[in-house]
Design a protein around this nucleic acid. Structure first.
Lengths: 332, 332
DNA sequence: GTCTTTTACTAAACCGGTTTATTATATATT
DNA sequence: AATATATAATAAACCGGTTTAGTAAAAGAC
């Protein structure tokens, strides 16, 4: 079972394996194989439930028809949603998807890429933990088809598909300003990642445009390895200090969720007094106070573009153009 | 780059590819290759950044060192969490993970399994949409290593790793009973899936044990393709009918989330009057009213068992024992 | 009736590894 | 000195496909 090969079919049909290969790949007519022979071969293949060995074909063709999807954490619904779409689109093009998690560890990321490459995976879609493109390039070279998403590298815009972080941060901040807030706190993670830096710039620019003076006391950069305490401390500062922020912009949904938790459990009196805004959406934002205005990423479009860009790179080695999509602000 | 093969190394080292293969697989001493030759080969391999072609190795060994993970929907955080753990554990054993979504479509499920098999994927971990094991068996045979999770088949318990659905439903119902509720509604999906049927049985048994008479009027089976309206109708019945249910058991988290939404937006007066219980956990359950008592699946353990069971099947063709783990009830 | 073209099909190389069986030389044993 | 054993390495088959170059026979052209 499952052991039927092209050789065995050739033997049964009393033809060469070349002929079998031609026929089963739909090149029978082109190769002038008689209808009689073609039918005979197809019948035997069908009767024996023949399925070509993909590994053998891959070795021969030098392609695995597999793409890699490498992200910090597949259990994060944001990545999960994109993973699903990518799988769906890739499948239509005859590609399967291999998934791996880096946990934001650049060494693990490097290992995964090397492993995927050794597996002859044709190209990867990557949310990289690397600080900049040059570091990544030093480790993995430049001759492997890659599309970057979620994490942006200014040094190489053309590999990127994702959102415009700067604009999104600006728009989220403006929503809070338009609600009448004058003191808007920023809760960020300490990070060198360009997408985070862009978000911070967008926040600052929105304040400047509205002539609101920047108050460094309500800008918090918290340790990504201890988000819980970082957010708790930030909110404690806000609620205890006289005349402090009345709104908070969180640079990702994990911190926003922590913020909601903290206010609800530690400072319930402030539930109605604070307005929140956050990057990325979470289902729970629909249910909670403080109200959270969020920026929803167009995950379907990101997935479509990502697969198409990678496909083009794999199959025609074109230099794609990077894409920055706008987010939808969900005003709550 | 990346094009260096065992043949080229053999050429450079002026030895046969056999020797190179032995040395690079750590069998140099065993095969009596002199230290001098071994070092020479290793140096050339390292200098040229040689990475064995996994595809070629797979073809030769008849193993791909890849496992398939097939689920209804990777964007569902429940599956995402398990996917992450599975990937982590599999990686430690030298396996990569290929992911595919069935969208609960048994034809797509069959196609994916056949595709994975043609790709020589060594075995699969599957949350099947099939009604029973025999149907699945008819389509894909019985000679492919499979571990089932999430969906239980009474006909073949030994393929399964997951939770005890019957017990969990019973315990969730008992929590509601212990809170003083006498009229407990059940919101289920219309389904032939054994795990759903088990949950219903558990609910009924808990009522019986507590001498609460079954009231078919507050048992709702809703169409899985239109959960939103189904839940809305169920809750409307409950709140409009005199003397109706004061608590609701939802058989999955999607329906529970809809229930919360409905109460909050349509019947806010009932927010404090109803108690909810639900299978599986969601982050948002921490934040909302009505309070939702939920049954958290031990996803880490499920993942560990799933990979180990599959690994054993692949490598020793053992008949594993099925496992039903208990859930943790989060009482809110 | 010979030359050309078309039809129908195949041998063999190749992809890049693994593995078995074999050989040649050096060393040890008696 | 003859034989047994250990050392060091290799040729070649194999995994299951794809593809190039080539052949033999039949049909068509003149």
């Amino acid at each position: 079972m499952g052991k039927i090969s092209i050789n065995k079919i050739a033997e049964m049909a009393k033809v060469s394996k070349t002929t079998v290969s031609f026929v089963l790949n739909g090149r029978g007519d082109e190769k002038n194989i008689s209808q009689k022979t073609q039918e005979k071969i197809r019948k035997i293949a069908k009767d024996n439930n023949y399925k070509a060995n993909f590994i053998a074909r891959s070795l021969s063709l030098g392609k695995s028809y597999t793409i890699g999807f490498i992200i910090p954490d597949i259990s994060n619904p944001f990545y999960g949603k994109i993973a699903k779409q990518i799988e769906e689109i890739a499948e239509k093009k005859g590609y399967s998807v291999m998934v791996a998690n880096t946990n934001e560890d650049i060494n693990k990321e490097t290992d995964i890429i090397e492993n995927f490459r050794a597996r002859q995976i044709d190209g990867i879609i990557l949310a990289s933990a690397f600080k900049d493109y040059n570091q990544l390039k030093d480790r993995i070279g430049t001759d492997y088809p890659i599309v970057l998403f979620d994490r942006f590298f200014p040094e190489n815009e053309n590999l990127f598909i994702g959102i415009n972080n700067y604009n999104t941060a600006q728009r989220l901040t403006e929503v809070l300003i338009n609600k009448g807030h004058k003191k808007i706190s920023l809760v960020s993670i300490t990070s060198y990642l360009p997408n985070i830096l862009d978000r911070i710039k967008g926040y600052k620019n929105a304040l400047e445009k509205a002539n609101i003076e920047l108050d460094e006391d309500i800008i918090f950069e918290i340790d990504p390895s201890n988000i819980k305490d970082g957010v708790k401390n930030a909110l404690t500062m806000i609620v205890t200090k006289e005349d402090s922020a009345t709104a908070v912009l969180f640079l990702n949904n994990v911190m926003a969720a922590e913020g909601i938790w903290t206010v609800n459990t530690m400072y319930p009196k402030y539930k109605q007094k604070l307005d929140f805004a956050s990057f990325d959406n979470l289902d729970l934002f629909d249910y909670v106070t403080p109200k959270v205005t969020s920026a929803l990423q167009p995950s379907t479009e990101i997935a479509i573009h990502a697969v198409n860009m990678l496909y083009d790179k794999i199959n025609s080695n074109t230099v794609s153009k990077g894409i920055q999509l706008e987010t939808s602000i969900i005003n709550r």
